[in-house]
Amino acid sequence: MSHDPHDDHHDDHHDDHHDDHGHSHYDSPASRRARSTFEVRAMALEAALVENGVLTTDAIDAFVDVMEHRFGPHHGARVVATAWSDPDFKQRLLADANAALAEIGVGGLEGNVRVVENTDDTHNMVVCTLCSCYPWPLLGLPPTWYKDYAYRSRAVIEPRGVLREFGLEIDPDVRIAVWDSSAEVRYFVLPQRPAGTEGMTEEELADLVDRNSMIGTGVVPIPA
């Protein structure tokens, strides 16, 4: 719906960027296909700012590296798995998430976090109606749907309808709590631990936890 007509091809090489740690993005295979208008404009802006001495390339590279590699949903999944396995950590996480996250070295920009717990009585979901605030250190950059107008406009007025579009039917007896991130605190959902995972290690548990379950547009399913 919001696609720029000049730029409606999706990039097939996105995953390649996980391998080019520390190198310029322009070394990637993506640079060998035709450039979109957006890419030409972005490169021109970078070139002009570097040329004028406003920015240096190493600073840009370092910032992108933090956003794409140091932050990400793997941290969020690890936090969930630890909280499921260690009741004391879970208690600290719910009482003061920033202190608990600092213990395990997770934090940074857009990372002032409150963790809200899904229970048998409450299902939490997170939105930012004003822009697209998101807990970057724990979840990385938000998925496109989180930034799109459909989600931003409707999550606060028809949460069950939106969740249904994610394939999620929440029991009518469960109260929904919608968190509209409007100031400096970012919200992170601690999903419920599924049945049948009693013997699992933290690593195995973390593998079950996907991004949507930590935004509240998904739940962690019972493992097959």
Binding site: M1, E39, A42, L45, F63, L141, D148
Partner: peptide, 24 residues
């Protein structure tokens, strides 16, 4: 604004999207 495009999962529509945001 219609239904949520739940399959639109990449953080960016272009590999340079994050870089452009960072530069800005």
């Amino acid at each position: 604004f219609g239904a949520v495009d739940t399959d639109a999962v990449e953080s960016s529509h272009s590999p340079l999207g994050t870089r452009a945001q960072v530069i800005a």
